[in-house]
Design a protein around this nucleic acid. Sequence first.
RNA 1: GGGUCGCUAGCUCAACGGCAGAGCAGGGGUCUCUUAAAUCCAAGGUUGUGGGUUCGAAUCCCACGCGACCCA
Length: 494
Amino acid sequence: MTEDQSAYEHPLVAARLAKVEAMRAAGEEPYPVNFERTDTAAQLHAMYGELPPSTDTGNRVSVAGRLMNTRDIGSLVFGVLQDGSGQIQLFVEADRLGDRFADFDDLDPGDWIGAEGEVVTTKRGELSVRVERFVLLAKGLRPLPEKWHGLTDVEKRHRYRHVDLLVNEDARMVMRRRVDVVQSIRKSLLDRGYLEVETPVLHHVPSGGLATPFVTHHDALGMDMFLRIALELHLKRLIVGGADRVFEIGRVFRNEGVSPRHNPEFTMLELYEALADYEDMATLTEALVVEAAERVLGTTDITYDGRPMSLKAPWRRLDYVGAVAEATGADWDPAMPIKEARKQAVAAGVEVEDPWGTGRIIAEVFESVVQDTIWEPTFVLDFPEEISPLARRHRSRPGLTERFEVIVAGNELANAFSELNDPVEQRRRFETQAAARAAGDHEAHPMDEDFLRALEYGMPPTGGMGMGIDRLVMLLTDQPSIREVVLFPHLRPE
RNA sequence: GGGUCGCUAGCUCAACGGCAGAGCAGGGGUCUCUUAAAUCCAAGGUUGUGGGUUCGAAUCCCACGCGACCCA
């Protein structure tokens, strides 16, 4: 069945193909060009909420969708029709259909049909369309999964998402909520005067983040290019160009391992606001998440992985270095000698690599001993400069930057800075990163002269924030894996 | 990259060294009020792939493929 060549020879497919050929032989088209629908399933249910049993409404409608199941009672058949809005029962009587009744009986689960008839309720009270006429809209050649259990094999659900969506209500719910979350964020930002923009996916320098890029090649230009790992530097160019508030919701690509929390391509929101700092970004980040939860779920009290969680603002605040100090019972300072930092890290059970400075070591200790302990959304504030090459120095704390991450359920949800806008300082940071890169750190930020040139024209004080949309959707749909919230997750070919 | 587990009919699952089975779907019947309809009959398999052990392998061993989870 999985081999395309032999699929048509499979008895279950061959039987359906034979029906197609029989229809054509009888002068009927199994894949007609169109069908006029008057109502969807959801519209009918909304229109006739609570009718008593055995009601004839006198309303003649036409509906269209996939026939999911039939219950054949001799000269009476009940069908379940599923369209994009929901399901509606078809009530099919031999008396009413005449010669065509046998043809209805010949339909298979999975076939697309259009049906016309009066809206009625059955003796049991089920809202139905009492079919007077029907037409096959598209023959399904492959059998549907089992009607009760549906498709449960995770690999098949992801590989054949179209089947997953048509038989699993949960899959449809997750897709719907993802769409609603993105719409909510877009609305929240548009309402605040942000402009939605699109920036290049193909980059000359894989900049704006610390990650390994995918490399591709431009034939005509004869040069390698990189799929973007972040949206940051082009959006900042737009702030230089005079935009006050911009955002982009776009796909970024990171050439790293696949895990329940990482897909090689994922969706990022990034936004930049002139004359704002990271405190403004914190307020905005809370608002975006709260508004999405309220619009999509109607509440900020959610359950994730079996545990309750409140998304209500204000969120807890935690000092980054302070949290590491508390968790390890040792004093930490980004200015402390690397030797000492290394010793304390080892004491905390963290392995240290040679090119790392104190800031990077603190970051590793944070991820190892603090991050997993955070459940409800928490701002972790003031990151070491070494691991924050695009964030401005903290206005009062040496060695630190004005940067926070939002950690939820042990995962990074968002990352924001008061942006570094001093081009000379930015150049110095890039040079430091380039040195780390030369020393073997493949995820250090590369030099980006083109961006520096933009900064040299003057970027106003700016706040910026990036958020992982997939992770937000995971939270709001209570899904443990990113593969459940990405419609078509990465899989090796069969 | 390492470890553990999984892969049997279209789908959901049994059988765990001794004749590969069931339910649903599909085929043929009965039934005008079903909601996973009920019911009778018949059919459906290279047990992920390739080796090996054995009188005998879905089952034990090895390799490979794909996936899940954990670790790096």
